[in-house]
Design a binder for these strands. Sequence first.
DNA 1: AACAAAGCCAACCGCATTCGA
DNA 2: GTCGAATGCGGTTGGCTTTGT
Length: 266
Amino acid sequence: MVKPSKFDKKGVKKGAWSEEEDEKLRAYIQRYGHWNWSLLPKFAGLSRSGKSCRLRWVNYLRPDMKHGNFTKEEDDIIVHLHTMLGNKWSAIAAKLPGRSDNKIKNRWNTHLKKRAHDDHTVLETDHHGTTMQPADHANQKENPEVKLQKKGALILAQVSSDSPSCSTRTELSSCWFSGSDCGVSKNVALQTSDYQLAEDFWTEHFLEDITSSVDSIMSPLNVVDDLIGQSSCKEMMMMNDEYSWSLLDSYDEYNDEFINFWDYIK
DNA sequence: AACAAAGCCAACCGCATTCGA
DNA sequence: GTCGAATGCGGTTGGCTTTGT
């Protein structure tokens, strides 16, 4: 799994780190900090490059680094943030304490990319199991509508908005919960209990809110009015500052992450 | 049991950005 | 403003492990 150790022309060691090297690096940084990565290996008694030391510390030795498997919640956060940010691994890592950008990148490439692709494929497919054509997408953007179906089906709520800016909380929140491209439309794409996207914890709580209060399949024509009749949905749909934040406050477990993300993105 | 293929992940590499003289 | 060094980031590599035949 790890590359065998070897030395380059300058006598700089490469490859796998030994326990002894780890201990030297850990002990030095815990005592003196990493004041200069390029000089650190010399002072710490290591035949490594500063770059290698930094990488080892950041990816593995940091005291706050988690070494176990990724949790489902962490996977969900990665998938969502990747939808928003793309391959900005350091930005994603900043929102996942204890996980390095390198670990997250590996996690994405080995586990989550396929899952995200599968989820996207589900979104591209309507509840009859037929794949939407590009024209269908265009129609959806042009014709605000909400489609809800109770169990085992996709809920796709599309809400029109006058806001031209992608930097508003309205837009951000819509993008966040939908995973859609920011700035295109106000989409809230959700799936209920056994839908694939219910894995997505950012939507799970919203779904619970919606599905617990919507008892039967509803036609697109009366869905919006009906949703607005539900206070929580009203808050979510209107998405003005006060409403959206009061709704999010009810999700204590994830609220800090969301606010951190908002602070980051704004 | 032996081999091949796929999965996984630590570490490396090169480029971009930041910082300081 | 310029330049070189340091740092940070994302893509890629390579070798061990696991799974399949």
